[in-house]
Structure formats: C-alpha cells, structure tokens
Amino acid sequence: MTLLIKYTLIYGIVLMLVALGACFSEHSGIINIAMEGIMVIGGVFGLLVLVMLPAGTSSFMKVLISICTAAAAGVVYSALLAFASINLKADQTIGGTALNLLATALALVLVKRYNNTMSGGTGTQSPKLSFVNSDFIFNIGPITVNVFLFVGLALLVIAIVVLYRTRFGMRLMACGEHPQAADSVGINVYRMRWCGVLISGFLGGIGGLAYIVPAVQVWNFESGVTGMGFLAIAVMIFGQWKPGRIFLAAMFFAVFKALANIYDSTFLTALNLTKEVYNMMPFIASMIILAFTSKNSRAPKAEGVPYDKGQR
C-alpha cells in the first residue's frame, strides 16, 4: 500500500505539473501538444547536469541546479513552439508534433554523445543514462517521498493564485477566450501568449525531470517519457482547465499509472495480467473519461486559432 502511495504521488505530481503547464498555454490560446517533447528536453538536460555536477556538490545544490536546468531547458524549448505558433501563425498541432519528434531525437543524440565521451570515444551507442537519485528522495514515516512533491504543491498554489487573483491571470485568460476583445482594451495578445507558452515550458521541463528521477536510477531515452505528456493533456481536459480539479484528476490517473509499477507485489498478481495491460490502463481510462466529459467541455474558446492583428 505504501508503494502504491509512493508511486501515485510521484506520477500524480508529474501529471499535475505538466497539465498545469498545458493549462496555462491553453488559457492563453495556444494548444500545446508539445508537452511530451518539453518533458523529454527538461528531463534530459536536468539529468545531464545532475550527472555532470562535480562530486563534492551538496545535495541541496544538486537538486536546485538540476531542477532549474530542467525548467530553463523547457522554457527555451517551448519558445520554439511560441515562435512558430504565435509569430509565424503556424498550425499549433503540427508545430507541437514536430517538437515532440525533435525532442526524442535530440535527447538520444545528446545521451549517446555523452555516453560515448564518458567511455573515451569508443563509439558506445547506449541510449541509457544512469544517475543517482538519492538526493531527491527522503522518508516521512513509512512513505518515501521526493522533493518534487513539495515543489509541485507549491507551484499548484502559485498557479491558482496567479490565474484567479492577479491581473496577469485575468489578461491571460482573456487572450485565450477572446483575443480581439483583449486587443481592443490594449492587451498585447502576442506577449500574453508568449508568457502562457513559456510557463508551460517551465512546468513541463520540471515535470520531465520529476517523472524520470524519483522512480528509477537509469533511464532509456529511446522511449522519451512514454506518453506522460499526452496523458497530462487528457488530465487537463478532465480537470476542465482549472488547477484545483487538475490536481484531483492527476492523482486519479496516477493510481492507474502506479499500478503498472507495483501490481506484481500486491494481490493484483492473482488477476494474472501482464505489465502491458497495466500500462494500457491510464490511456483507456482517459479515453473513457473523455468520452463522458466531452459534451460539457469548457475549453478556452479561441485556443488553436492563431491571432492575426489584421483580421477582425
């Protein structure tokens, strides 16, 4: 049971962080289907920095620097989406898809290159990166938690306050609902949308690291982040674009995801299902839930539509 809680918390926080990111982007009017790619980029840069930090670095600095790197990498990478979809008015879905594909390829090149250098240029082609995650993890009573739990909860509170209590949040949502209206009262729609997408990069980058680091000690980048970015988008839809609900939805999905990790150590072994079946579960659950909630969707009205100052 404690294992279930442990993994649910890990995955729940990841899904929440990434869904919050997507939520900020969509509230500004940009569909960010590149969350998967942003997670990969955040994860790979965060991890590379983590393994390259000198041995004597304190735990606190290791955690801080790697998280900041992941966030920064996510922000930079999301800027590619912002530039294409806001300034060049590209199709947001295609642009996002391109970034997803690019991210996995880039991560593989970097990891292989790193492994090759570490092995003295012998041409090692391993896509796997080994690391030590002990700095991120500690125990509270019987439950193992990781630092991302606290980071995530803090960011959740900040997200709620920013979205509903500040001028920025109000203007951001106006841009996603009715950019012409926002423009007519002097709000710079392009700038707000840039902010929305960059925030999604920030949260997605941290989410990528948070997915990889706490659960394992070695990661194969051939699989990217195994569809977590897309699940997070489903979480966002299920959460009706509202941070509080997104948190609950994320935890709900995380239970399914966690089952795949722990089913063999619980009574579930009696069901005699394979790991793949458990891996499938969150995806099937998300489809069923979407099928039931799609009718009363509260998606931002102007999302996906490039804003063109000339067209009124």
Binding site: M170, M173, A174, E177, H178, A181, A182, S184, V185, I187
Partner: peptide
Amino acid sequence: KLVECFSVLDNIILGVEPNKLG
C-alpha cells in the same frame, strides 16, 4: 468585444484593472 465566461465587472475593468503589485 466581451469575454463571455467573465463577469460583467471583469469585462469592464479588463485592461485597466486596479491592482496592487499585480
């Protein structure tokens, strides 16, 4: 040019919101 899911008041102040530190 009104944001439909905002309240009347929010629509009126949008763009010139009275605020303290944002």
